[in-house]
Design a protein around this nucleic acid. Structure first.
Lengths: 349, 349
DNA sequence: TTGTAGGCGTTATCAA
DNA sequence: TTGATAACGCCTACAA
């Protein structure tokens, strides 16, 4: 029964020092150590110094699990993102982090990669961690897993998606308007045959942007059949290239003179293929993208794109989920941001 | 002293159900519930069903903090990334996640955004969460905060950086070789005046890639002064454009016929400016990037680039940190991956 | 097969 | 100002 000093114990057993160890080392009671940590003013400077020294010596680090268990809640928000490699979502996450930081919380990022199974798994884990709130860009916004979450009492905010259900907070951007802006811009530039490129149609964004495009098209008095719809499998660069092949295959007399893509990744792929195929942009083919990711402005022909306030989107979502977590009689809100067209060389007359 | 049913309690107090609540609801003891959770085979099918039903009714979700407190360790790895908006790092993170998932752990992502303060803060939080291991692409690889971490007993692996110190595991890519590959490729293509674009020189990668470039340049018997070095502030698109301005300002008779950029973001910026300035790529200016991010192949003139095995890098790092966490007499390793040149149109003769 | 008890590290309450 | 103690939810011996 040789009593090893805490220091020695730590070194040998690798166990990490606890408040109790600190208390022993500093020759005070456990409660005093806790006071040093949480209400330093209630401790005399002398003892406080002694305790702090002991903490340093032992390499004491608070155990967040224990705090959390005791507190009943964590100090985290969780965001289940749809695609961590899409710059759009990383920017959204950045905005959330800003808000979380302001509130003294940290943000845990998870990536569903667009798969329901992974999404479900991450939600499970986040709940087990008792996150204060859950932000999610769901694979399927209408899925009932979201209801299950909310019914368990976890504040949930749906990000960059809408849902026909006023019992959820949602934060999104007006995609119908975005579609309008893109087409109005192209019509202004004199285009009378335009392709809309996007898919899969199961995505709300893809549908809404097309709807906006159609509305603007009709408002301009143009015939429906001159707004060609090219459907893609995914919103990725490779699909943009493929759409380019289809466009390039159309006889030039009937080929659209402009394309509006449902996101910038598609637009970049299209741009690349167009140039490879010898089409000049914007002379032979004007291109409008969507999202205005950094690479849009940096493309060799800088892309005209519909900008979404990505960081603000994230910030608003985080603030909303915090409000829901804090304010007991919080009202669910559907926040809709306004997109903005950024004109660049890819549509310059 | 009216005893409210757990169900009612949950609904009213918002408190989330615990194993104890489940036990009461199912009419069994707390230990049995725990057994259902952890050793279902030790419980008779009948009681198990009863307990499972109760869990469902109450919306029971395990409390990870409590488990963790009890277990003494979490089920998480942490990665403090340098720049979450750089596709290179998101791919690395993806590789880590794969490995973590295989080991039944989850990966927490943090973004230092290249700032030491934020890095320090995240490290603090991750330690408080008692992560099993820490992966980090540090702002300063030689910083002593890393030593402090390791001394506290947390396994640490340095990612995409090297450090002159065999007491750390590091996983990186051979940047000297990468620099060599780029220059050899350009020399092969007949270039005899080349610019190296990169900075700040405080970054090891920037230095190493330049060193490799110089070695290859000398091996080819070319004079040092014909390898022009253009220094940048950061490895971002805007700096690439700026470098382009400097290049374009050089009289065409003395201008380098090719540029090797320290990463793809610079290369994309350079490409954009070159085209704007009326330089044809690769005819007037060939360009080689570094990283081979997705947008490199998708650029309007697809970029030749030095590819790094990003996902493998992440996977290896995660496996290493797990080994360090598990195996008591683990030997620190410095893993060095081999880069590979991907030739595309931006250097096509 | 099921139940009981003790403790993980922290915090807050209450008493000294 | 400081100290003792109970509780958070879970898990695992060990006992019945």
């Amino acid at each position: 029964m040789t009593s090893t000093s805490p220091l020695a114990r730590r070194a040998s057993a690798g166990r990490t020092a606890s408040v109790k160890d600190v208390a022993v080392a500093a020759g005070v009671s456990l409660g005093t150590v806790s006071n040093v940590l949480n209400r330093p003013d209630r401790v005399s400077p002398a003892t406080r110094a002694r305790v702090e020294q002991a903490m340093k010596d032992l390499g004491f680090v608070r155990n967040e699990s224990a705090r959390q268990l005791r507190a009943g809640t964590s100090r985290m928000l969780g965001y289940v993102m749809l695609d961590a490699t899409n710059p759009f979502f990383t920017d959204v996450a950045q905005g959330m982090e800003t808000a979380a930081e302001t509130a003294g919380l940290s943000l845990v990022l998870c990536n569903s990669r667009g798969r329901e199974g992974r999404e479900q798994h991450h939600l499970e884990l986040l709940q087990q961690q008792r996150v204060q709130g859950l932000l999610i860009t769901p694979v399927s916004p209408e899925s009932d897993v979201l209801e299950a979450l909310r019914d368990r009492g976890t504040p949930v905010v749906i990000v960059d998606r809408t849902r026909d259900d006023p019992s959820f907070c949602t934060v999104a951007v007006d995609d119908v308007l975005g579609g309008r802006l893109a087409i109005e811009h192209l019509v202004d530039r004199g285009h009378r045959r335009v392709a809309y490129i996007g898919g899969p149609p199961s995505l709300g964004q893809v549908r809404d942007r097309l709807e906006g495009a159609r509305l603007a098209w009709r408002d301009a008095g143009l015939p429906d059949e001159d707004l060609l719809v090219i459907s893609t499998e995914e919103l990725v660069v490779a699909e943009g290239r493929r759409a380019g092949e289809r466009l390039a295959g159309i006889a030039s007399s009937k080929r659209p003179t402009a394309a509006f893509c449902a996101n910038d990744l598609l637009a970049l792929g299209l741009l690349q293929h167009a140039i490879t195929a010898g089409l000049r942009v914007p002379h032979d083919l004007a291109i409008v993208g969507y999202d205005d990711i950094e690479f849009a402005g940096a493309a060799a022909v800088p892309l005209t794109s519909v900008r979404q306030p990505r960081q603000e989107l994230g910030r608003a979502a985080a603030e909303l989920v915090l409000a829901e977590a804090t304010d007991p009689d919080h009202e669910h809100q559907q926040v809709l941001f306004t997109p903005e067209l950024v004109a660049r060389a890819s549509t310059r007359a």
